[in-house]
């Protein structure tokens, strides 16, 4: 396939007039992809924000910002948002559309993809332009990374979690065009968000915590999970989890680390009763020191950490907690 110089898009959402970090990370990556293609990097921003927020999109690498600041875009309404994006996409024919793996992005992306009749790749760990000049989208699977491509249909759409790409260095000399976007006319809304209720969790966010203790299905039961939580408390660590632990109902989706969860950057990571699935481990690659506690000496997790403890976590964790508590007492007296 010959190279296309159609634009590379990022859908920049806003929550309470603030653009989430992941959107700037994506604009930075879109800039690189656009440079490889000789195309322009463009952001589509729906909802009112301050001018400095728009400038940040330019500083991050956007050449154009489509901005819809009608009150209709104030809070996320799937039908208004998707119709606006689809209409503009049909007019301007972007070859790539990137969205954050946020709750909004995860709902919006498939609606857009289906309306445009094209493919969509979930929660990518890397995006690159391959030798056929199309978008390579790496996702973890089966102990490695697989590449997904969308060879024929356009645009190529992907979602990416926060922290997969670095926030780009801001180039304050950059600026670009702001083009207005209007909401669709005569659209009868069938879905209406009536109210948004946010309760920020206490403590350090998982993404910024210096110590992360993550638990997996090896906890075995609610009591076992409680032990892991206690270990996190004793270490003043943030508690993370794997998908099986979330599916067991032991913890909230907000604690999930990895491809479809959060990316963490701790000094110390302790993985308890988890097997080292790529989908989880890709979320921790930047940790300084990694420890795994697992009763299976053959567990793949041991190939991916610095220190391994081959023990049943339900025996070892309570002991470790006791030792750490003793140490704290000593250091205080």
């Amino acid at each position: 396939m010959s190279r296309s110089d159609n634009p590379v898009w990022v859908i920049a959402e806003q929550v309470s007039e603030i653009i989430p970090t992941v959107c700037f990370e994506l604009v930075g990556q879109a800039r690189k992809l656009a440079d490889d293609l000789g195309a322009s990097a463009e952001a589509l921003l729906l909802g009112e924000v301050t001018r400095d927020q728009i400038d940040l999109l330019f500083y991050s690498g956007a050449d154009v910002v489509y901005h819809g600041n009608s009150p209709d875009f104030g809070i996320y309404q799937s039908e208004i948002y998707s119709e606006t994006i689809v209409t503009l996409s049909k007019e301007t024919q972007p070859q790539i559309i990137l969205l954050g793996s946020t709750f909004i992005g995860r709902e919006l992306a498939p609606i857009i993809a289906a309306k445009l009749g094209t493919g969509l790749t979930a929660h990518c760990m890397d995006l690159f332009i391959n030798e056929e000049h199309i978008l390579g989208q790496r996702i973890p699977a089966y102990g490695g990374l697989i590449s997904i491509t969308c060879p024929e249909k356009r645009p190529q759409i992907a979602t990416v979690a926060q922290g997969v790409f670095q926030v780009p260095e801001l180039d304050k000399n950059r600026s670009g065009k702001i083009l207005p976007v209007e909401p669709p006319v005569g659209l009868k809304l069938r879905v209406k968000t009536l109210e948004v209720v946010i309760k920020k969790p206490e403590g350090v966010p998982l993404e910024e915590a210096p110590i992360v203790v993550a638990g997996g299905s090896g906890a075995g039961c609610v009591e076992g999970w409680q032990e892991i939580k206690t270990l996190a408390d004793v270490l003043d660590a943030a508690l993370g989890s794997t998908r099986p632990a979330v599916d067991e109902g032991w913890t909230d989706l907000d604690t999930m680390i990895g491809q479809s969860g959060k990316m963490v950057n701790p000094e110390l990571y302790i993985g308890v009763g988890l097997s080292g699935e790529q989908q989880h481990m890709v979320g921790i690659t930047n940790a300084k020191v990694m420890v795994a506690i697992n009763n299976d000496p053959k567990s793949p997790v041991f190939e991916q950490v610095d220190y391994g403890i081959v023990e049943d976590c339900r025996e070892f964790v309570p002991l470790l907690v006791k030792k750490l508590q003793g140490k704290n007492k000593k250091s205080r007296t």
């Binding site: 009749g117 094209t118 493919g119 969509l120 790749t121 391959n130 390579g136 790496r138 973890p140 699977a141 089966y142 102990g143 490695g144 990374l145 697989i146 590449s147 997904i148 491509t149 969308c150 060879p151 024929e152 249909k153 790529q278 190939e303 991916q304």
Partner: peptide, 12 residues
């Protein structure tokens, strides 16, 4: 529309 194009092994 999407296809799996290759598998790479991740070296720790």
């Amino acid at each position: 529309p999407t296809i799996v194009s290759d598998l790479t092994v991740v070296e720790s």
